[in-house]
C-alpha cells in the first residue's frame, strides 16, 4: 500500500464560516447541518491540470481586449502563488474578474447607476510560471454600492480564482487595495476572523514593478493549502 500525501486542514481562523449574518445572503445559503469530515483520497488530492497552452499570452491584459483603451487608472498586479510551506505553485490557472473604473460590472444583474465602458470586459486569465509568478495588466476597479445594509459599499477589489494542484487547494478569493477606508465596514473582509488573514487579502504598492510614466503596480501573493510532509522525490529515478 502506498500512502497518500494529503493537504493540511485550513489553519484556524484563516477562513470565514459559511454562515455570517452581517453578509445577509449567507443566511439562506449557508449549510445548517455540520459538515461531514472525510479523509482525503485521490479524488481530493488530484485536480485539473492546466498549462500555458490553455491560455493566450494576451489573456492577462484586460486593457487590450477592445478597439480602444478602457477608461481608468492603468495598473499592474503581480505576485506569486505559494503553498503554506513556501513552495511555489507552478502551472496553475488563475481567472480574474472585476468591475470597471466606475464600479460597474459588465453583467445584466448590475444596475448600479454608473457608466459602462465599451472598452472593458473585466475578465482575464493566466497560468503561473515555474516559480509560481503571475501578472495582470488592467485598470483599477471602482468601489460600488450594494444593498446588503444601509449605505453599503464594496471596497474596490479584484476576484481571483485559483485551481492549485489538487481539488483540495481550490481557492476563490478577492484582492483589496491598501489604505481603503471601506475595508473595515465590508462584511466580506470582516467575515475572516483572523486580523492577519484579513491583511493577507490587501495588496501592497509595488514600486519595483511600477512603470515610470505609465502605470502603478500592486503586489499580491496568494497562499494555498500545503501538505504535511514532503513526499520522497522519485522523479530523478525515472529513466
Amino acid at each position: 500500500m502506498s500512502h497518500l500525501n494529503p493537504y493540511r486542514k485550513s489553519y484556524f481562523d484563516t477562513q470565514p464560516d459559511y454562515r455570517y449574518p452581517p453578509y445577509r445572503s449567507t443566511l439562506k445559503r449557508a449549510p445548517t447541518q455540520p459538515l461531514v469530515q472525510i479523509p482525503q483520497t485521490l479524488s481530493e488530492i488530484t485536480g485539473p491540470v492546466f498549462s500555458a497552452r490553455d491560455v493566450k499570452d494576451t489573456d492577462n491584459d484586460l486593457t487590450a481586449q477592445h478597439a480602444g483603451a478602457p477608461i481608468g487608472e492603468r495598473m499592474f498586479v503581480s505576485g506569486r502563488v505559494l503553498d503554506e510551506n513556501g513552495r511555489p505553485v507552478p502551472n496553475t490557472l488563475i481567472e480574474m474578474w472585476q468591475a470597471n473604473a466606475a464600479g460597474r460590472y459588465k453583467h445584466i444583474v448590475d444596475d448600479h447607476d454608473a457608466p459602462m465602458d465599451p472598452n472593458f470586459t473585466g475578465f482575464g486569465r493566466t497560468v503561473t510560471d515555474a516559480n509560481g509568478h503571475y501578472r495582470f495588466k488592467t485598470i483599477k476597479p471602482g468601489a460600488y454600492p450594494w444593498r446588503n445594509h444601509y449605505n453599503a459599499w464594496r471596497p474596490a477589489h479584484l476576484h481571483f480564482s485559483l485551481f492549485g494542484q489538487g481539488f483540495a487547494q481550490r481557492l476563490v478569493t478577492q484582492m483589496y487595495f491598501p489604505g481603503d477606508p471601506l475595508l473595515e465596514f465590508d462584511p466580506m473582509v470582516m467575515s475572516v476572523p483572523d486580523e492577519r488573514a484579513r491583511q493577507r487579502l490587501v495588496s501592497s504598492f509595488d514600486w519595483e514593478n511600477t512603470v515610470p510614466e505609465y502605470a502603478i503596480a500592486y503586489h499580491f501573493d496568494m497562499i494555498l493549502r500545503g501538505r504535511d510532509a514532503t513526499p520522497m522525490e522519485t522523479k530523478g529515478n525515472k529513466k
Binding site: T14, P16, S25, D83, E84, A99, H159, A197, I223
Partner: peptide, 17 residues
Amino acid sequence: SLLLTAAQTVGPYVAIG
C-alpha cells in the same frame, strides 16, 4: 510558514469570471 489566503465569495457577477 505562510498564512493561508482566505476564501471570499464569487459574488453575483461570477459569470464574468
